[in-house]
């Protein structure tokens, strides 16, 4: 599970499953329940799905970048540097979640979502970015860097 290409494949499948759950199923649910002041339901659902997809693709790329970085022969002798790199990628993931949320808020600035819905949007974007990066690198990092992700 920690060696290529299996970790890449499993991570891709995991991202796909998360995308189905959050973009399709949760997106459909939000389209039926969220109160929209001016936006069309279709526009909201489509934009939400596009943002979730962007978050999912970027989260996936972060994880793949870490797998690639961790499997390089030169990384073995630079574990401190690898640790800093993992932290950087994690923070980038966190920033992506915030950025995508901000994009959603700007695109739907005339809407007034509930606090719970704001939290849900951030949770979904987090699930695809920093949380996804953390969980997948925790479980599937190459052996040379498997101890670096937080929680090991």
């Amino acid at each position: 599970m920690r060696s290529a290409p299996l970790n890449y494949l499993i991570t891709f499948v995991l991202a796909g499953l998360l995308w189905v759950l959050t973009a399709l199923i949760l997106g459909g649910y939000l389209g039926n329940t969220v109160a929209l002041t001016v936006a069309y339901v279709e526009d909201f659902v489509q934009t939400y799905r596009i943002l979730v997809s962007v978050a999912a693709v970027l989260g996936l790329l972060l994880a793949f970048w870490w797998y690639y970085y961790g499997s390089r022969p030169t990384t073995v002798g630079e574990l401190d540097r690898a640790g800093r790199f993992w932290t950087t990628l994690f923070i980038v993931g966190l920033a992506l979640a915030v950025g995508v949320l901000v994009a959603l808020l700007i695109l739907f600035r005339e809407e007034s979502f509930t606090v719970g819905q704001y939290a849900l949007f951030f949770g979904v974007f987090s699930l695809h970015t920093w949380l996804f990066f953390w969980i997948s690198t925790l479980l599937m990092s190459p052996r040379t860097v498997q101890t670096i992700p937080w929680g090991r």
Partner: peptide
Amino acid sequence: AFVLALGGCGG
């Protein structure tokens, strides 16, 4: 399937 899902699912 991805594009269709983005544009059409649930609509």
